[in-house]
Computed example of a mutant assay.
Amino acid sequence: MVDRTIHPNTRVLLDAWRRLNAAPGAGAGKTPQVNDHPELVERLFVIQQMRDNAWLFRNAGEAVTGLLGRQLTNHNFLDLWTGPDRKMMGAFLEAIRLDGAPGVVRGRGETMTGQRVELEVSLMPLAHAAERPGAYRLLGLYQALGGEPMLKGRPVWRHRISMLVPPDTRSEGPQLKLVASNG
C-alpha cells in the first residue's frame, strides 16, 4: 500500500501491524506499546464478520463513539454507508479478508445538519481470526483529518467514500534479471 499521504496515526498503526505480522525473526525494532500512542486507543474499533455478511462492531473507542454519537457494540459497520458506498465497502471488507492485508478508506462524514469532516478509516485483519470459523475480525482506526470543531459537537451520520486503497499483496520474492550477450 502506498502510504505517503496517510494520517500519521494510520502510519503508526500500519507499521505496528506489519511488525506484528512479520515472519518470526524478521521483525526489527520493539513491539508497539499502547503507552507510546495513547491518542490512537480511543480511535480504534473491532468489527466481526457474521454468517449473514454483516460486520458487527465488537467494541469502539471513546473518540469513535463520540464522533458517531452512539454506542456501536452489535451495530453493523456497513450501516454507516448507504447505496453504492455500502456495496463498495462490503466488497472492500471482503478483499481485506481474502487478501489478509490492510486497506484504507478515505471519505467524508456528514452531520444531519450538513457539517462535514474528512475521514480516514484503516482496516486490518487481526491475527489468528481466520483460524476460527465465524470469528473473522478486523481492527479499525477511525481518524478525522481535521475539521472536527466544524461539526459543532453534532454526530457524524452519513458516510461517503472518496477513495479506497486496497490491500497490497505484492510478494517480495526473487527478482529475475535478463542479461544478454552479443559476443
Rank of each mutant, 00 (worst) to 15 (best):
Asn53Pro: 00
Val46Ile: 14
Ala28Pro: 00
Pro38Thr: 09
Phe57Ile: 06
Asn9Thr: 13
Val46Gln: 14
Pro102Asp: 08
Arg4Gly: 13
Leu68Gly: 00
Lys177Met: 09
Ala54Phe: 00
Ile6Glu: 00
Glu172Ser: 11
Thr5Ile: 14
Gly100Val: 10
Ala16Asn: 03
Gly61Lys: 09
Val2Arg: 12
Leu98Trp: 06
Arg11Ala: 15
Lys87Asp: 14
Lys152Asn: 15
Arg18Ser: 11
Met88Thr: 11
Val165Leu: 13
Val41Leu: 15
Gln71Tyr: 12
Gly109Asn: 02
Ala63Ile: 01
Arg51Glu: 15
Asp15Gln: 15
Ala22Thr: 11
Gln33Glu: 13
Gly61Asp: 06
Gly90Asp: 13
Glu148Tyr: 01
Thr169Lys: 03
Gly90Ala: 15
Glu39Gln: 11
Met88Phe: 04
Tyr136Ile: 07
Arg116Pro: 00
Arg116Asn: 08
Ala54Gln: 11
Thr82Ser: 15
Gly103Asn: 10
Thr169Gln: 05
Asp3Val: 09
Phe45Leu: 07
Asp3Pro: 00
Ile161Val: 15
His128Trp: 04
Glu42Thr: 14
Arg97Phe: 02
Val41Lys: 03
Ala63Cys: 06
Leu98Gly: 02
Asp99Cys: 07
Thr73Met: 09
Leu80Lys: 02
Gly83Glu: 15
Ala60Glu: 04
Pro102Gly: 05
Pro32Tyr: 04
Met124Ala: 15
Glu148Cys: 04
Arg158Gln: 01
Lys87Leu: 12
Ile47Trp: 05
Leu13Asp: 03
Gly66Thr: 15
Val46Phe: 03
Leu119Trp: 07
Val117Leu: 05
Leu178Cys: 08
Ser171Tyr: 10
Val12Pro: 00
Arg43Met: 12
His37Val: 13
Gln143His: 13
Gly134His: 13
Asp85Tyr: 01
Arg97Ile: 09
Leu126Asp: 07
Leu67Cys: 05
Glu42Asp: 12
Ala127Thr: 12
Pro149Trp: 05
Leu176Cys: 07
Gly173Ser: 09
Val121Ala: 04
Gly134Phe: 08
Thr73Asp: 05
Gln48Glu: 14
Val156Trp: 02
Gly83Lys: 03
Leu151Thr: 05
Gln115Ala: 15
Met89Gly: 01
Met112Leu: 10
Leu98Cys: 04
Arg158His: 01
Val46Leu: 09
Tyr142Ile: 02
Tyr136Gly: 02
Ala129Tyr: 13
Thr31Trp: 07
Pro102Leu: 07
Arg18Gly: 06
Gln143Glu: 13
Trp17Met: 10
Pro167Glu: 04
Ser181Pro: 02
Arg19Pro: 01
Gly147Ile: 09
Ala144Ser: 08
Arg70Asn: 11
Gly90Trp: 01
Trp17Ser: 02
Leu151Ile: 11
Gly25Met: 10
Met150Gly: 12
Thr10Trp: 02
Gly107Tyr: 04
Pro32Cys: 06
Gly114Ala: 10
Gly66Ile: 02
Asn74Val: 04
Asp52Met: 05
Leu78Met: 14
Leu14Phe: 11
Gly83Met: 01
Thr113Lys: 08
Ala16Thr: 07
Trp55Arg: 01
Ala26Phe: 04
His159Ser: 03
